[in-house]
Design a binder for these strands. Structure first.
Lengths: 214, 214, 214, 214
DNA sequence: AATGAATGAGAGTTCATTCAT
DNA sequence: TATGAATGAACTCTCATTCAT
């Protein structure tokens, strides 16, 4: 049985994480102060230091779990019985939904600059996670285009697909609407976007392959 | 007639703007201090306040002209004797190059939230500029797809095109490489991206038009 | 009869005092945190406040007993059957060892300013203790020089002896070595110091006595 | 010609140094805050950072020049036409006077712990200075005892002499009296102290030399 | 008796900005 | 016009201390 104290403690920690997530997301890591977070979390700024070593630890602890979750969701979709196109679409929608839900974090995950240059480890973890995510997308694109496509072309087309996906996310990240509103309103647009990309990529992939650098 | 003093004054102002632009672009607005700017501009930090109300005024004054420039460049390209596809491609490349050159500004232009909530007017100016830009892109897309396309579809396809364009920009904005390096390395990728989009969009545009909300 | 609870309570208090003493001694009062003490004492930092009003109370309660102990030790030595010189030497060594063992305390005892200005009473206690100690030293010096020496000269020579003793202590107080290391290494040096002083003082004390103010 | 501004600037810097010196001396480096210094210096605490990189820089800049001055004074005395005993006495008095004048600094110079463990350079400089000072004293002692004395014995006797000197300083450092008052009152005591030491040491130095470790 | 949770005060430091020349 | 001097606000983070259990 958990004591009342432990419950309160967990609650406080959660509220700090929630506050930090929201603020980092909306204003950016640097622009958010510990006191801002504390205020939003409804506690003193010193309380934060009971639960997190420093501001950066907050950021780190905040960014990893959702990314892990998305990676797992991707794996789940990859393993499902769906047509390749539907798989890729589902993964794309999942990514969009994730990023709009965790608006705070997506920048951390996708923007290289998030970490300081001097500290390697936290950046590396995030970088690894991002690369994994990209790898999943690549698998899905491969499923749509077939195995004969050389790696180099696969990479190129995945990247192009990723551009559009990222563009969608970046466009709506700063919107004031809720995820539900956005998804409700825009799913057809997103579907259309995926289809446009698949048609274009397939048409290209079938033609002769000229060399293109990355 | 302008006096020697006025000339020198103009020169100082210009050097401050140049310094601020470069530094904002390379390190980001927040990470740059007034003293950094002053050092780079070769004047005292107090001098900056003679020409600019505050740091934000610097940013603002810095962001408008390049956007104007880009708009004019777009107009120029729209007016040139080129195939519709080449026009759209040229405009896309110009946009990418512009955004990577003015990295710190592009957020101001493309992210709705960038400005403080309290100040309306500067945001409006920027919003107008952004809408103008989107309008130019729409014209170019229209050129590629023909005039029979209903507005609603045109908007959808322009938006999809814009997603990819924005994705490209957002992807490389946080890179540490210089514009020159990036453009040198990635132009083929960008070209391929535009082609994929055009193929996909055209294929869609020719088919029957289902309704899609925005 | 004492209950088991009371025993445990005493034990906790003792372990807190022991921890504080060790840490104050090795790192200095200011550099030690309540949490450091609690950790070393094996209890929560809040527990300390059950037994001691605050950090300063800890220091105070910690400083008196050793001083008392030293005074008693001095008395013991004064009462022993030893040559006057050996008595003085033994007392000197005891003082040195005491001060190096209780490094953080010695300042409290020997530096007038150590206590806050506002609190009179604890300072007085310490002052009394210090004066007592000086008195013991004076007795021992008197034993070496004979009873005919006027008080004024006795005071002067005791003071001179004290200078050297204090100098030894001040020199090695800030060393990082342990008491054992220091004493093991330096006892011959200390002995030689005492002998030099006694020779010098005796030679002076036998000569004609000029007046010297304090 | 120096401008009025430059004068004011110099004045401010000086007042900061004076304030810091006084406070470091009376309360100890750690117990003094930048705001304390600023208050005493009559300026804002941020002003300090215009003139000194950080708190430690203040300490460093504060400690070196007086020490240099003392070293030079010692050299001057060593070069003068005086009997060896008078030389040593003069140097001793000079040291005492210096330390009582710069009460703030003497701890920095004589207490090894002053600097943090991690930073080598500032500590080294001070250590070098201290060693130089000790070397001067050694020369003077050598002058009194003659050249035949083995180095090891010379070191021992210098150390003993130093103990007493340091003891004098440490004793009166925490006094509230001014240097002038103290010197006026105590010079005879100091003289007597030096004489006692010289007699004792000489007597020892002429006898057979037993080995003594450091 | 004992403790985990929480906090206010305050540390060093930075920065945009104003003042006086 | 231009600048060095100076500052208040605010930042991250620490610590002795109190509160609720």
């Amino acid at each position: 049985m958990v004591s009342k104290q432990e419950l309160r403690s967990e609650e406080t920690k959660r509220s700090i994480l929630a506050a930090a997530g929201e603020l980092f997301g909306s204003r950016g890591y640097d622009a958010v102060t510990m006191r801002d977070i504390a205020k939003q979390a409804g506690c003193s700024h010193t309380t934060i230091y009971i639960y997190f070593k420093d501001k950066e630890a907050l950021l780190h602890q905040l960014s990893m779990p959702p990314v892990q979750y998305l990676i797992e969701k991707m794996d789940g979709l990859l393993g499902q019985e769906l047509s390749p196109d539907d798989k890729l679409k589902a993964m794309s929608l999942a990514t969009i939904e994730f990023c709009l839900t965790n608006r705070s974090m997506y920048g951390l995950v996708f923007n290289t600059k998030a970490g300081r240059v001097d500290e390697q480890s936290p950046k590396l973890e995030i970088n690894q996670a991002r690369n994994k995510l990209f790898g999943k997308l690549e698998s899905a694109v491969k499923g749509c285009l077939g195995n004969e496509l050389p790696d180099e072309r696969l990479l190129l087309y995945t990247r192009i697909y990723f551009f559009a996906l990222y563009g969608v996310i970046a466009t709506y990240t700063s919107s004031e609407e809720s995820v539900e509103q956005l998804m409700g309103r825009l799913i057809p647009t997103f579907q259309e976007t995926f289809e446009v990309l698949l048609i274009g990529i397939r048409s290209k992939a079938e033609g002769p392959w000229a060399r293109t650098e990355d």
